[in-house]
Computed example of a mutant assay.
Amino acid sequence: MAIKDLSLSAKMTIDGFMNGINKSTVKGPGLEFSQYRSYQPGDDLRSLDWKMFARSDRYYIRESEVETNIAVRILIDSSASMNHSDGDFTKIDYARYLGASLAYLANLQGDAIGLYVLKNSGIFSMVAKQDYQHLARLFYQLEQINPEGKFTKPIHYKELFTGTQKRELLIFVTDLYQSDDDIINLLDTLNTLRHEIVVFHVLSRNEIDLDFKGYSTFEDLETGETIQIDQEKARVNYKTKLAVYLEETRVKMLDRRIFYRTICTDEPLDQALRDFLKQRSKLRI
């Protein structure tokens, strides 16, 4: 049932997204405008550009080039901080739905789909393949994620070098909770492999607004340390520091040529899906 639910959720999300998206921005399976050329006898009349005919009174064929299908790898942070909740909904819940929807959309586009789950004990890896059974297995692995411990240590990064040597589009879903720049070090490692990288920084509304409905004691999910906070007194200073942190993070990503977007767990997935299509169009293999 878990697999079926996640699969159904992804399908419903993508179907709704594709129905609502501007048809002119999605040409189908990888078609991108290349150039015009004069009509020649025998050309398919469906390729005639009637707007060009209206302007020039001459027949032109609109030629397109086909994108090569790419390999897309979903990376999920499964450290304990991803268990942070806002109500009954956790960051890892959001990461699952986002990862499943991106995988479903990529499969729909004809791309090979793979998975990395970044665990305290190492990295779980699924090779990138393009078939529905593989997609079903990916959904299953997303359902099995149980966040615990701290972020994956560099000693485990060797797993990243054992796969295909082709350039991939890596979609990293994380809350960027780290010590000693562990996640930045990972991104630097991935950059050495010349992959295209997209980072979705997942935040919950209660941590953005520092609104935890009267709680005064807070626990670090990865270290177990606790701290007492008066939310009302701390809120203004907290929001200022959070804004500085997010801007510094944005600059770090920009310096590494990584596409970066913050995304809140109460936001719909549409913008993340648009960002995926935008970055996908930049990658050629």
Rank of each mutant, 00 (worst) to 15 (best):
I74D: 02
L48I: 15
D111F: 04
D180G: 07
R274F: 12
F218C: 05
D15H: 09
L221T: 05
E267W: 12
S79K: 02
H195I: 04
K241V: 03
T164M: 03
I70W: 02
K129R: 12
L193D: 09
F124E: 13
E67S: 11
I197F: 08
T249R: 08
I285M: 12
L193W: 14
K119E: 15
F89Q: 05
L138W: 02
D77M: 02
L48D: 09
Q279V: 14
K153Q: 13
L169D: 00
E159I: 05
T262Y: 01
I197V: 09
S64T: 07
D111G: 01
F161R: 14
L142N: 05
Y260H: 13
I171A: 04
A10T: 09
L98D: 06
S7V: 00
G99R: 12
D57T: 06
T192D: 01
D131T: 00
M1V: 00
Y59M: 14
D182Q: 15
D93I: 03
Y97Q: 10
T240G: 05
S7F: 06
D211P: 06
N185Y: 13
R235I: 05
F124M: 05
Q144F: 00
V127D: 12
N22L: 08
S56M: 14
V251G: 00
T262A: 06
R261D: 03
A2T: 10
I76A: 06
G20R: 11
L283E: 08
S64N: 12
Y97A: 04
T217G: 00
F172I: 11
S125Y: 00
R55A: 10
Q165H: 13
L45K: 11
R137S: 14
R261E: 07
D209V: 06
K213C: 08
S24T: 12
S216L: 01
I113Y: 00
L48V: 13
S121E: 15
M52K: 09
L6G: 01
G20H: 08
K213G: 03
I74A: 05
I145G: 07
S101Y: 14
A243L: 12
L210V: 06
L142E: 01
E168D: 01
R37T: 13
R55M: 09
D43P: 10
K158R: 04
L273E: 11
Y140F: 14
S125W: 00
Q231T: 09
F172T: 02
Y59V: 06
S24F: 13
L142P: 04
T164N: 06
L193I: 11
Q35M: 15
Y94A: 15
R257C: 02
F276S: 00
R55K: 15
S179L: 08
G114W: 01
P41M: 06
S204T: 13
D57G: 12
M82Y: 11
